[in-house]
Computed example of a mutant assay.
Amino acid sequence: MAKLRNRESALRKLAAIPPAVRSAAKQALAQSADELTDAIRAAAPQGKTGKLKKSVAQTWGGGAVRYSALRGNVGQAGDPDLSVVISAGNSGVRYAHLVEFGTAPHINGGIFAGTEHHGTRAQPFFYPTWRRLRRRARSRISRAVTKAIKQL
């Protein structure tokens, strides 16, 4: 997450936003987060068990997802009420980044030391989906905020 300059000032300004506008922004953010989570889950490779698809989740409050290999932020980074993290991977699925980006051929270590791994091809599902839908999410939130401000 990027550092926010003058964080205290920005948080004061965010706190001064009228409740109706905050509510409209949160509803639009929730709709966008649901849409993005469903799209990422649909784009994830099925695999043998389907665990990767099931591991795609959203966490409100901007908190870090402990076992996530891939994560993207939606919403304002400075306000926990208007922040959601969408992630792929958890304690049982620690390979989401390997599926997304692939692996190069290499010599294994550990209990299979010395054996050769041929590598795997990348199967991007997380970031291409985010790039495809982020403009829609931003526009939806912007429209909701503008509409709520006009109704004040």
Rank of each mutant, 00 (worst) to 15 (best):
K54Y: 00
Y67R: 04
I107G: 12
A144S: 14
R121M: 07
S139Q: 15
A25H: 11
L36Y: 07
A20M: 05
S91E: 12
Q151K: 15
S32N: 06
Q76M: 10
D79T: 08
R7Q: 14
S55P: 00
G61T: 01
Q27S: 13
A137G: 14
E8K: 07
A16H: 05
G110W: 04
A144F: 07
Q46N: 09
R66C: 00
L11G: 01
G92A: 01
T103G: 04
K13D: 08
V99E: 03
Y67M: 08
I141E: 08
L29N: 13
I149T: 12
A44P: 03
G47C: 05
T129D: 07
K26G: 03
A69R: 12
G109R: 15
V21G: 05
T120L: 10
S142W: 00
T146L: 06
E35F: 12
T146G: 09
G75V: 02
P80K: 13
K147H: 02
R134W: 02
V93T: 00
V145Y: 07
A2I: 13
A77D: 08
P19L: 04
R140Y: 01
A43K: 05
A43W: 08
G50H: 09
G47R: 13
F101K: 14
G114K: 03
Q27R: 15
Q58R: 14
H117L: 02
A113P: 07
N90K: 02
Y127M: 03
I107K: 15
E100M: 08
T120G: 11
A39Y: 05
D79V: 08
F126W: 12
Q46M: 11
G50D: 09
G102H: 14
K13P: 01
H97Y: 11
K48P: 02
Q31G: 10
H97T: 06
G92I: 01
W60N: 13
I141V: 15
M1T: 14
A113G: 10
N73F: 06
H118G: 14
W130K: 14
G114S: 14
N6R: 09
G110S: 06
Y95H: 08
N73D: 08
G62V: 00
I86R: 15
T146P: 03
A69F: 02
V56G: 08
A33P: 11
S68D: 09
V65A: 10
N108R: 13
G92P: 02
A42P: 09
P18E: 05
R132S: 13
K3Q: 13
F126A: 09
A24H: 09
R140S: 10
A122G: 12
R94G: 13
A2F: 12
R138V: 01
R138F: 01
A57C: 08
T49Q: 09
P105I: 03
T120Q: 15
K147D: 04
H117R: 04
S142K: 15
R138L: 01
G75S: 03
T59W: 03
G110E: 13
G92T: 01
V85Y: 08
L36C: 09
Q76G: 03
R22T: 04
R41E: 13
D34I: 01
R140M: 04
S91Y: 02
Y95V: 06
Q46Y: 07
D38A: 15
D81N: 14
A28G: 15
V145A: 11
R22I: 02
A24F: 00
Q58E: 05
I86W: 13
L133D: 06
A69W: 03
K51R: 10
V93W: 03
R71S: 06
P105A: 09
D79N: 14
R12P: 03
T146F: 00
S55D: 05
A15Y: 02
V99T: 04
T59K: 04
